[in-house]
Design a protein around this nucleic acid. Structure first.
Length: 649
RNA sequence: GCCUUCUUAGCUCAGUGGUAGAGCAGCUCACUCGUAAUGAGCAGGUCGCGGGUUCAACUCCCGUGGAAGGCUCCA
C-alpha cells in the first residue's frame, strides 16, 4: 500500500501502481471525467502512469494551466499523426504548447508544401483520429534504442534532439500508428480532443536559429468541447475588430505611406489631438513630481553613441551614419535620448544639493528594425518616447524609483488599465559579455530595483538575462479588455552611462561623486501606447482623451446656426466639439456619429432652439434627455474630472 | 533579413488570357426632416511598380516595392 496526500493534506491509501485516473475515480466519477493530468511530488505526469511510492498529488483539470498544457501537447501529437497520414516521410521537429494552443515544426518530404487550404483536411483527420479513442501509451527506452528507431524513420531532427538527451531519461509516446519522442505528460487517449482549429501556417527556423533550415510551423488550438472552440473564435473575431491598424484608419488617427517609407507612422489631426492629450497629461503629472522638460536634436555625433556604448551594441540596428558633405563629420539619427541628456547634465557643475535632476523629453528616436519586424504602430522605425532621465545621488535611488512607480500608477488609473503585472529583469550571470559596467555596480542597481519594488508592495516576477545592456529594469505589463498582455512602461537603474560620460557632482564632503541615472518611460513609446489604448478600448477612448468629445446634430439646415453657436460655446469651455451640418436626416447623422465613436451627440431642432437647450445622447446609452448649455458643459467637465481623479492639480 | 500568403476606385471587396465591376464614401439636385442608413443622378481605377511570354496580360512567368501571419531581433 502507498499513501497519497491530496492538496488539502487529506490522505488516502492505494495499492502500489495505482494511477492518477484511478485516484480521481475513487474520489468522484465526475472528477475522473474532467481530470487531464496529475502532479506527483511536483512533477506533472500522465494519468495512466503507475505511482509506486508515497506521494503528494494534485489533479489538473482544463481550468488548470497544467491541464491545458497536457491537452494541447497531446493535440500536437495528434496533429502530427494526421500530417504523417497525408504526408508520409515528414520529419518532426518540436511540438510544444503556446499560450493558447500549440504548434508543430515539421519538415515535409521533398517537393511537398502545405498551404492554408490543406489545414481543413488535416483538421478533419484529427477529429477522425480522435474518435478512434486510441490510448496514448508511454514507454521508457534506452538512448540507443531511441536513436535506432528514429534512424530507421530517417528523422534527423529527432535524432539531433535525442543525441542531446541523457540516457535513461528518454520516453516515447505511442497512439495508433504514431510514435513520438516526448517527455510528456499526455492525455490517457485521443478522444478527449473534441474540437480543433488549425490557425496558421508559417516558416520557423529549426531551433530558432536563422542559420538553420526553415521548417514549416503549423499552429493550432483544440478544446474538450465544441462550444469552447466557438467561444474562442468569437474572441479572435473581436480581437480583429479591435485591431489598431483597422481602427486607426477608420477613425483617421494615423497612416503610413509607401512614399514616405515603411515603419514611419504619420499622425493625422485626430490622432495628433489624442496624442497631445496624453502628452499634456503626463507633462502635468511630471511637473508635479519635479520634472523639467528639455528638448534635444534628432541627430548626434557618432562619437556620442560610441561613448554611450549604443554604437557598439546597436550600431547594426541603427540607421547608417550620415556624413556632412564638406567636412565629412559623422552623425547618427538618434536611437536613444539618454546620451543627449547626459550632456545636458554636464552643461555645468552640479552640487549634491541640485540632485535629483529630472529631465523629461518626448524624444523621437529612429531605429532600424528589420522589415519583417514592423507591425502597425507597435513596431516602427521612428517613434517618440515619453522619456526622462533622473540623475540622483546613490542614497536617492530608491525614493526616486518609488516615485516613478507612483507616476505609472496614476497613468494606469486614468486609462482604466486595471490588470497589470510587473517584471524585474536582471542580468544573466553567465553572460557578462552582454553587459557593460562593473559587477559591483550591477549588484547595487539590481538591489535598488528589488528593494524599491518590494517596498511599493509590487507583485513582481524576476527574469534573469532580460536586463538592458547598461542596467537592470522593471517593466510593467497590462492586460487589455480581451485579456491580452502588453508591455508598456519601463524603469531602469543605470550606474554605467554616468561613468562613461564622466558625470559628476560635488558632495557635501567637497569631493567629486558620480550620480546614478534612472531611465524611465511610463508609456514606453507614444505610438505603441496609442496602439494598445486603441485595442483596449476598441477606439472608445475615455472622454478626457478622445479627439472629438461632442458633435452637435441639427435636425435640419434651419437649425445650423443654433447648432454652431452651441458648438462655439462648448469650445470656449474647453470642450472639443463639432457640428454635423450635412444635409441628412437626423437618424442618419446619429448613426454615422455613433459609428465614429463620438461620446456625446447633441440633437437640436425647433424645441431646443426655443428653450435654449440641447437634447443629449450618450454613446451606448441613447437619449438621456435635454438640458441647458451650461448644464451640459458641467456634465462633461465633471466626467473628465472624475476620470482624472487619480491626479488632481 | 528569412518562410508563407496577399496587393483591383478614398474604404471594403467581386472578377476574367480578349483592354474592369459592386456597396459605402465623394460631388450635384430634390426633400427641410425628431433619436442608428431619404431618393435620383454624376464622377472616380495606366488592376502596386518594372520586365518577359502572347496576336492580345489585370489575369501566365521573372524581378521588385508594400502589407499580413510567423521565425530571428527589440537599447
Amino acid at each position: 500500500m502507498i499513501t497519497i496526500t491530496l492538496p488539502d493534506k487529506s490522505q488516502r491509501h492505494y495499492e502500489s501502481g495505482v494511477d492518477g485516473m484511478a485516484i480521481a475515480q475513487s474520489i468522484s466519477p465526475r472528477l475522473a471525467k474532467e481530470v487531464l493530468a496529475i502532479s506527483v511530488n511536483g512533477e506533472t505526469w500522465d494519468l495512466t502512469r503507475p505511482i509506486t511510492e508515497d506521494a503528494e498529488i494534485k489533479l489538473f483539470k482544463w481550468e488548470d494551466r497544467e491541464g491545458q498544457v497536457t491537452f494541447w501537447h497531446s493535440s500536437a501529437h495528434l496533429m502530427a499523426e494526421a500530417i504523417e497520414f497525408f504526408y508520409p516521410g515528414t520529419k518532426f521537429g518540436i511540438g510544444p504548447t503556446v499560450d493558447t494552443g500549440f504548434y508543430y515544426d515539421i519538415d515535409l518530404p521533398e517537393g511537398k508544401q502545405l498551404t492554408e487550404k490543406d489545414l481543413e483536411k488535416i483538421e478533419a483527420k484529427i477529429i477522425e483520429l480522435s474518435r478512434l479513442k486510441n490510448d496514448i501509451v508511454r514507454s521508457s527506452v534506452s538512448k540507443a534504442d531511441a536513436l535506432k528507431m528514429f534512424k530507421e524513420k530517417g528523422d534527423e531532427l529527432k535524432l539531433e534532439l535525442i543525441s542531446e538527451l541523457e540516457d535513461g531519461t528518454i520516453s516515447l509516446y505511442n497512439q495508433g500508428n504514431f510514435t513520438d519522442l516526448c517527455r510528456g505528460p499526455h492525455l490517457p487517449n485521443t478522444e478527449y480532443i473534441k474540437a480543433v482549429k488549425l490557425t496558421s501556417i508559417a516558416g520557423a527556423y529549426w531551433r530558432g536559429n536563422e542559420k538553420n533550415k526553415m521548417l514549416t510551423r503549423i499552429y493550432g488550438v483544440t478544446f474538450p468541447k465544441q462550444k469552447m472552440l466557438e467561444e474562442y473564435l468569437v474572441l479572435v473575431e473581436e480581437a480583429k475588430k479591435r485591431d489598431h491598424r483597422k481602427i486607426g484608419k477608420e477613425m483617421e488617427l494615423f497612416t503610413f505611406s509607401q512614399k514616405v517609407g515603411q515603419g514611419l507612422p504619420m499622425w493625422l489631426p485626430k490622432g495628433t489631438m489624442l496624442r497631445l492629450q496624453l502628452e499634456d497629461f503626463l507633462k502635468r503629472v511630471q511637473k508635479k513630481f519635479g520634472y523639467e522638460q528639455v528638448m534635444t536634436p534628432h541627430i548626434g555625433d557618432v562619437n556620442l553613441y560610441k561613448t554611450s556604448g549604443h554604437y557598439a551594441k546597436y550600431g547594426a540596428d541603427s540607421f547608417q551614419v550620415i556624413k556632412t558633405p564638406v567636412e565629412g563629420e559623422e552623425y547618427m539619427l538618434k536611437p536613444m535620448n539618454c546620451p543627449h541628456h547626459c550632456e545636458l547634465y554636464a552643461f555645468k557643475p552640479r552640487s549634491y544639493k541640485d540632485l535629483p535632476i529630472r529631465m523629461a523629453e518626448f524624444g523621437t528616436v529612429y531605429r532600424y528594425e528589420q522589415s519583417g519586424e514592423l507591425h502597425g504602430l507597435t513596431r516602427v522605425r521612428g517613434f517618440t518616447q515619453d522619456d526622462a532621465h533622473l540623475f540622483c545621488r546613490p542614497d536617492q535611488i530608491k525614493d526616486e524609483f518609488k516615485k516613478v512607480i507612483d507616476i505609472i500608477f496614476i497613468i494606469f488609473k486614468a486609462l482604466n488599465f486595471e490588470n497589470y503585472s510587473a517584471q524585474i529583469s536582471l542580468r544573466d550571470p553567465n553572460k557578462p559579455e552582454k553587459y557593460i559596467g562593473s559587477a559591483e555596480n550591477w549588484d547595487k542597481a539590481e538591489r535598488a530595483i528589488i528593494e524599491a519594488s518590494a517596498e511599493k508592495g509590487l507583485k513582481t516576477v524576476t527574469v534573469l538575462g532580460e536586463a538592458a545592456f547598461y542596467g537592470p529594469k522593471l517593466d510593467f505589463m497590462i492586460k487589455d479588455a480581451l485579456g491580452r498582455s502588453w508591455q508598456l512602461g519601463t524603469i531602469q537603474v543605470d550606474y554605467n552611462l554616468p561613468e562613461r560620460f564622466e558625470l559628476e557632482y560635488i558632495g557635501a564632503d567637497d569631493k567629486r561623486h558620480r550620480p546614478v541615472m534612472i531611465h524611465r518611460a511610463p508609456f514606453g513609446s507614444m505610438e505603441r501606447f496609442v496602439a494598445v489604448l486603441i485595442e483596449h478600448t476598441a477606439g472608445k477612448f475615455p472622454l478626457w482623451l478622445t479627439p472629438e468629445q461632442v458633435v452637435v446634430l441639427p435636425i435640419s439646415e434651419k437649425y445650423n446656426d443654433y447648432a454652431q453657436s452651441i458648438s462655439d460655446f462648448l469650445n470656449n469651455c474647453d470642450i472639443r466639439s463639432l457640428i454635423d451640418d450635412r444635409n441628412e436626416k437626423i437618424g442618419r447623422k446619429i448613426r454615422d456619429n455613433e459609428l465614429k465613436r463620438i461620446p456625446y451627440l447633441l440633437i437640436v431642432g425647433e424645441k431646443e432652439a426655443e428653450n435654449q437647450t440641447v437634447s443629449v445622447r450618450r454613446q451606448g446609452h441613447g437619449d438621456v434627455g435635454s438640458m441647458s448649455w451650461n448644464g451640459f458643459a458641467e456634465l462633461i467637465n465633471n466626467e473628465v474630472k472624475e476620470q482624472l481623479s487619480s491626479f488632481n492639480n
